[in-house]
Amino acid sequence: MSDQPNTTPIPIQQPASEVCATCPAHSRANLLKLGVDMTDWDYVVALAGNPNTGKSTVFNALTGLRQHTGNWPGKTVTRAEGGFQFGGQRYKIVDLPGTYSLLATSVDEEVARDFILFGQPDVTVIVADATRLERNLNLVLQVLEITERAVVCLNLMDEARRHNLTVDDRRLARDLGVPVVPTSARRGEGLQELLQAVDDVASGRTVCRPHRAKVQSGKLAHALDQLTTQIQAAYPQLSNARWVALRLLDGDEAIADALRRGDLGDLNKPAALDPVRTEVLPLEAVS
């Protein structure tokens, strides 16, 4: 989709809760940290983002768990899971390893991508570092190619302020076509708004129209169109046909295999009760 800010619907968090959200009684009543209790969840939330953007901090703040967080890229190499309850709905939240891309060139990237792709999260929260927006948007854009139901958590706003940076979150939300919530997870700022945005996307109150990068080269655009049309014909329900086409063109064996198995058709089924487990495969012994 090309850049048309005026015609793209603006996903804004509902201001109704704005006054209440500042009241501590309201916060306590609304967020129930469930720790590792993840029974009977209504929605699954995936937490993606670049390394060292505070994903684990957001995870801990929501679940009440205390996974150690470090100022340390690559801190989370395995998936951590926890639960919370918000607005009467029970959520399971999965903290994915931090990655710079979703091209699945390493184990952690594969874990993150497979979960967003096959784990069928109802909402994918992409934690982005407000002080390094450009680098973080690379991943945001890649995630938005795969899934429509996403919320960008613009974290480390306190750091951004310290560096005198101003980030226009509403403009970014308009450009990206998904809700953008500024937060400082370490201080607990913005988490109520984040939860509200997640809840709105999960329940379908907010409908996202994610930004998808335009392909510049004419030859490529033509090839892509051809393949996308074929895929759409085979899987009319698929919302990320273009991304699948791109991956197939790039020779991505994992996606080709998923197509062969016929798993791709299920990609957009909402809230599967038993998401596919994407465990880290043991390292192949060499020599």
Partner: peptide, 9 residues
């Protein structure tokens, strides 16, 4: 996109 959203000091 980043350039549109971020104002530097």
């Amino acid at each position: 996109l980043a350039d549109r959203a971020v104002t530097r000091p």
